[in-house]
């Protein structure tokens, strides 16, 4: 029996399994700051939370991240500069609409995001054990910020095992536009990779460390909570940006490592994109 035949014969079962599994999926690792396109640099507050952003639902307890750093570059011809940010992380309790989970915040002093240019923030979390799925999840997450409109390294991969490389500036998108990127698995384009698209539907309130209860949008059916698409045969994808705010793109299980501490591991890649109303 070849795998295609197997897949066909078990299509109904697979569909059923997907429907059952769907609510447990859609975890998104956030690197959040209110505005990624800054006119001038300065001190910056960032939030790292592992949650279900559309529903502001169950927030998972994060462990201290393995890595948190920024790769900045002023102009296309300049050299990228990597700055470790782990020392700025502080453990916090983050309140979702359904629970309280362990998250991290970073108060970055003004010297870090001051120069003109791009800042690619990178988070390598410690794998999270998802008991309901009996597997570990590790989402390599990027958020790209810019100061002053001088671009730099926004389109360059940073070299993660699972990574989404943008084809549009992630910090400069109009509502109603489209956003494209390439999913890289161990540095190579990942054809037909499964993507989930999430929306930060509840404003994170950084000072009170909770999601705002009011939702910006409602899903008419569960398929809309997180949209599902696949990359094409070159590992590329395009999404629409129908509403202002932060959109998360997550490529599931594209990283090379599939086991951690004797259990299955899903190495995902996440990229955050902000859409701005044209006014």
């Amino acid at each position: 029996m070849n795998s295609r035949c197997f897949a066909t014969r078990h299509a109904w079962f697979a569909l059923f399994a997907f429907l059952v599994a769907a609510p447990a999926g859609a975890h998104f690792q956030l690197i959040y700051t209110p505005e990624p396109a800054l006119k001038v640099g300065g001190p910056l507050q960032m939030l790292l939370v592992f949650t279900h952003p559309f529903e502001a639902g169950h927030t998972m307890d994060m462990a201290m991240p393995a890595e948190f750093y920024v790769v900045s570059q002023r102009g296309k011809e300049a050299r990228p500069q990597r700055t470790d940010l782990k020392k700025h992380l502080q453990e916090i309790q983050w309140t979702s609409l359904t629970n309280v989970g362990r998250a991290y915040e970073a108060q970055l002093p003004k010297g870090i995001v001051r120069s003109l240019g791009d800042y690619v923030f990178v988070l390598v979390p410690t794998p999270y054990y998802e008991g309901s799925e009996e597997k570990f999840i590790q989402q390599f997450t990027k958020m790209v910020l810019n100061v002053g409109g001088l671009p730099g390294n926004w389109a360059d991969p940073v070299g993660l095992p699972a990574e989404i490389v943008p084809l549009n500036k992630p910090y400069a998108n109009w509502v109603g536009g489209v956003f494209s990127g390439v999913v890289l698995a161990d540095g190579k384009p990942a054809p037909h990779a499964e993507l989930e698209i999430g929306y930060v539907n509840h404003e994170p309130n950084l000072s009170q460390r909770r999601f705002e209860p009011q939702a910006r949008a409602s899903a008419p059916q569960d398929s809309f909570v997180n949209l599902s698409i696949r990359t094409n045969d070159r590992g590329e994808f395009t999404i629409g940006l129908p509403k202002a705010g932060w959109w998360g793109i997550c490529a599931l299980g594209v990283g090379p490592q599939s086991q951690y501490q004797g259990k299955p591991l899903s190495q995902d890649a996440v990229l955050w994109v902000k859409a701005t109303d044209m006014q």
Binding site: R74, G75, K76, E77, A78, S115, L116, G117, G148, G149, L150, P151, G152
Partner: peptide, 11 residues
């Protein structure tokens, strides 16, 4: 002071 161009070219 820092200068450049919006397409990333050097100043």
């Amino acid at each position: 002071c820092e200068g450049g161009f919006s397409d990333g070219t050097s100043a």
